[in-house]
Amino acid sequence: MSWALDHLSEILTRAGQHAWLAGLPLVLGLVVALPLGWLASRTSWLRASLLTTTGLLYTIPSLALFILLPSILGTKILDPVNVIVAMTIYTVALLTRTVADGLSSVDPSTRQAAIAMGYGGFARFRAVDLPLAVPVIAAGLRVAAVSNVSIVSVASLIGISQLGYFLTDGYARSFPTEVWVGIIACLLLALVFDLVIQVISRALTPWTRAVAA
C-alpha cells in the first residue's frame, strides 16, 4: 500500500496513458463498426463474409500485431499509434457483429411502419434502427472496453508506457506488490470505462426504463 502511495503520480500517469490507448480505439472502432454492421444487417451475403472476416481479426495475437504493424504502417516500433491501430482492429472485430445484431433486432412491425412512412435507407438507420440498437451496441462496447484494457497491457512488452509496465517490471524484479498494483489499477480502469458506457447508454435510452404505468 505504501509502495502504491509513494508511486501514485507514476501510477496515475500510466493509467492516463492506458486509458488513452484503450479508450480512443473504442471510439474509432465504433465509428468503423457502425457502417460495417449496417452493411452486414442489410445484405445477407455481405453479412456472412463481413462477420467472419472481422471475427477472425480477433484471433491475431496482440503481440504479433504490435510487432507487425510498424512494417505495414511505416511507423516506428515505439510509436503508440501501433497500439491504437491494433486496439481499433480488435474493437471492430468485437463490435461489427454486435452492431449488425443490434440493427437487425428492431421489431419487424416497427421497421415496416418506418418504411411505410417513407424513411429511406440512411434516414431509417439514423432515426429508427440506430437509436433502437443502442442497448445492444452498448453491451458490445462494454465487452470491448474490458478486452481493450486487458490487451493494452501487453504493449509494455514492446516498451509502450501504460499500466502493463507494472506487470512486466514487477515480474522482472520479483516484486509481487508492483504486479498487484498493476492488476488492480487495470481493474479499476475497466470499471470506470464500464461505468462511462453505461451512463451514456442510459442517457440515450430513456425509453427502455419506461414500463407500464
Binding site: D107, S109, T110, R111, Q112, A113, A114, I115, A116, M117, G118, G120, V128, P131, L132, T205, W207
Partner: peptide
C-alpha cells in the same frame, strides 16, 4: 417517399417507435 407520406399506414401491432414518446410518434410524418 412522397407516395408513402401521402398515405396513412396502420398495421397489426401498431409498429410504434418504442424510443419515441406517443406525441413524437404521432408527429413523425
Amino acid at each position: 417517399a412522397e407516395l408513402r407520406r401521402g398515405m396513412g399506414y396502420v398495421i397489426q401491432h401498431a409498429g410504434l417507435f418504442p424510443h419515441r414518446t406517443v406525441v413524437d410518434n404521432v408527429m413523425t410524418v
